[in-house]
Simulated assay, not measured.
Amino acid sequence: MLIANDESLQKSIRQQGITLVDFGAKWCPPCKVLKPILDELAEERGMEAAFIEVDCDDSPGAASTYGVMSMPTVLVFRDGEPVEKIVGLRPKAVYEGLIAKHL
């Protein structure tokens, strides 16, 4: 999973295809549970979607730009545009469904 910050996030989002951006923080317990789920999905589905991690403490501008109010928040981008937002921890199947839905 790629790590991005305020400066690099826009350049890291795929302009064609699907990108999942995980907004979280090192101190956030649900974020710690989500990280291995998304890491696993990145290994399994990395050809179909890009996976990016953004630390909200290090990148408050990116979090603000996309209206992230709670962590974890996963934004789905299709062709560079945000199309869906999931707030809170969900089972792996939900994130798999997001990828399938937006392919």
Rank of each mutant, 00 (worst) to 15 (best):
Q15D: 12
Q15V: 08
Q16M: 10
Q16C: 03
G17P: 01
I18S: 04
I18A: 08
T19A: 10
T19V: 10
L20R: 04
L20Q: 09
V21K: 00
D22Y: 04
D22T: 09
D22M: 10
D22V: 09
F23R: 02
G24F: 02
G24T: 05
A25H: 03
K26E: 15
K26Q: 15
K26A: 15
K26M: 13
C28F: 05
C28Q: 09
P29L: 12
P30D: 03
C31V: 08
K32M: 14
V33C: 05
V33H: 06
V33R: 11
K35Y: 11
K35F: 10
K35D: 12
K35N: 10
I37H: 02
I37Q: 05
I37G: 05
L38N: 04
L38T: 01
D39K: 15
D39Y: 12
D39S: 15
L41G: 07
L41M: 11
L41P: 00
E43G: 13
E43V: 13
E44L: 12
R45L: 14
R45A: 09
G46M: 02
M47E: 15
E48Q: 15
E48K: 15
A49V: 06
A49Y: 02
A49K: 03
A49I: 10
A49F: 09
A49P: 05
F51H: 04
I52E: 01
I52R: 05
V54D: 01
V54I: 12
D55W: 07
D55Y: 04
D55L: 08
D57M: 05
D57N: 05
D57F: 06
D58C: 04
D58F: 08
S59E: 08
S59I: 04
P60G: 06
P60M: 01
P60E: 06
G61S: 08
G61M: 12
A63P: 07
A63F: 03
A63V: 00
S64W: 07
S64E: 13
T65R: 14
Y66Q: 05
Y66A: 09
G67D: 09
G67K: 11
G67M: 08
V68M: 01
M69G: 06
M69L: 14
S70K: 13
S70W: 05
S70H: 11
M71P: 00
M71F: 14
M71R: 01
M71K: 00
P72V: 05
P72G: 09
P72A: 10
T73N: 10
V74Y: 02
V74I: 12
V74H: 05
V74A: 07
L75Y: 13
V76W: 06
F77S: 01
F77E: 00
F77K: 00
R78H: 13
R78F: 09
R78A: 15
D79Q: 08
D79G: 10
G80R: 07
G80K: 06
G80N: 09
G80V: 03
E81C: 10
E81V: 15
